[in-house]
Design a protein around this nucleic acid. Structure first.
Length: 423
DNA sequence: TCTGGGGTCCTAGGACCC
DNA sequence: TCTGGGGTCCTAGGACCC
């Protein structure tokens, strides 16, 4: 039986989340900023129309913000993560086969639902998500994931579709592929688009008909899969169980430029802690750790970036041990007198927690009591939705912490931040 | 003054081995 | 003067995604 994929994608997700709890910004231009209140990473239609580009540094848009009365929010990922879970729960009511692809997107298998009418089923999904979460979504339906993306874009950009679009017939598919630029295809980025256009391939229909050998030779098997998907041959299947991560990174820019070693150490310790929490959540041990630091790349002063990594043998998920190693790595790359703008910690080479090996000689990090300590910290912080329990190495004040001047409340995950309705 | 963060996969090239 | 060939593993970097 032929496959049928639906791609459900939330419209300007972060902005829409803010609008659910703040009706006063519903018909206004709205942007949500990246960490540290840096760039615009989510924009309402009105903000796009006002000329605020995706990823634009907000300080460069102050004129537009003032002129159009743009409402500006700091990123509130706790809120967005919780809203995302709610959307996914609604989608789960409509199919047993669901892949959560990102915080604001999911692929659904609609195989077996044809007799209900794909068009009307998609409309039902869309209205249910809106009714139960307050979030608007667009839905594209097609025989492959890549074509579902095409259909989804069309639904999003054309109001007459009312947010849903099915692309199931060969004739329709060819028609819409001819109207799709190669750069808009899922999997074709800037570099590949330039290469394709230089070789006379401008739209998705032309790419669909390009010779396999030529694609494979110059654009690797990855793009060949994309081409097959455009032909309606499904190469990318539904990944219903999300596999464990192969790398876990915590990297941040600072609220201000940091020079002192002690502050750098605190930041590294804090980022190790965040990474190790995620590591333990997926029940893994890290066999390699990488630390990097960098100065502000936008300044005239010479840019410095350096990283150091180390094998961890035997692998561990014990935060104090990881912090010790990370601090040692930091010492190797830290240069006195520089002003650092960011640093990061990356854990990788994971093994399963059940394979934990005992230390033969070094007893400092050994023993089940250490593991229990981590379990207790994780459980408490998770249940209280906070990071009240943390290691002193992270520092108390965290003066280097990112700026978040326009942050909304955690309406859905904190009792003390619930939405108040005044009558 | 102010410029995000977190992932995956693939390839090329070097080191090393027999 | 002439100086093999094939395999694996690791790392860095590119390209892409949201």
């Amino acid at each position: 039986m032929d496959k049928i994929f639906a791609l459900v994608d939330c419209n300007c997700f972060y902005v829409s989340c803010e609008r659910v709890f703040n009706p006063s910004v519903r018909n206004k231009p709205v942007v949500v900023l990246s960490n540290n209140d840096g760039c615009a990473i989510s924009r309402s239609q009105e903000a796009k129309a006002a000329g605020i580009a995706m990823g634009a540094p907000i300080f460069k848009c102050q004129d537009l913000v003032k002129k159009y009365g743009v409402e500006v929010f700091s990123a509130n990922f706790v809120l967005y993560g919780d809203m995302s879970n709610r959307v996914m729960a609604v989608l789960g009511q409509f199919t047993p086969n669901l892949e959560v692809y990102s915080i604001d997107e999911a692929f659904l298998s609609l195989q077996g639902f044809e007799q209900l009418g794909l068009e009307s089923y998609a409309r039902k999904i869309r209205s249910s998500v809106y009714k139960q979460t307050g979030l608007p979504v667009s839905i594209g339906v097609a025989p492959t994931k890549t074509l579902a993306k095409v259909a989804n874009h069309y639904a999003k950009d054309h109001p007459e579709t009312q947010g849903t679009f099915c692309l199931m017939e060969e004739k329709d598919i060819n028609h819409y592929l001819a109207k799709t630029q190669v750069r808009e295809i899922w999997g074709i980025g800037k570099e590949k688009a330039i290469f394709l256009e230089r070789n006379g391939i401008h739209n998705a229909f032309e790419l669909k008909n390009a010779p396999d050998e030529w694609i494979k030779k110059y654009l690797t098997v990855v793009t060949l899969r994309t081409v097959w998907e455009l032909r309606g041959i499904s190469c990318l299947s539904l990944e219903e169980v999300s596999p464990n991560k192969k790398a876990i990174a915590t990297t941040r820019t600072f609220g201000y430029e940091v020079s002192r070693m002690e502050e750098m150490e605190e930041a590294v310790a804090a980022y190790v802690s965040r990474s190790a929490e995620k590591l333990r959540r997926q029940k893994s041990l890290a066999g390699h750790i990488q630390v990097y630091v960098e100065t502000n790349p936008f300044k005239d002063t010479p840019f410095y970036r350096n990283s150091a990594g180390m094998k961890i043998n035997p692998p561990t998920a014990y935060t104090p041990h990881l912090i010790d190693i990370a601090k040692g790595l930091l010492k190797r790359i830290y240069r006195e007198g520089l002003r650092y703008k960011a640093c990061g910690v990356i854990l990788m080479d994971f093994t399963a927690q059940t394979n934990e090996q005992e230390y033969l000689f070094d007893e400092k990090y050994q023993g089940s009591s250490r593991q229990r300590l981590m379990e207790v910290m994780d459980r408490y912080n998770r249940q209280s939705n906070s990071s009240k329990l943390f290691l002193a190495a992270e520092g108390l004040g965290k003066p280097w912490y990112m700026k978040q001047a326009h942050k909304s409340k955690r309406f859905t995950t904190r009792w003390d931040e619930l939405l108040e309705v005044k009558i």
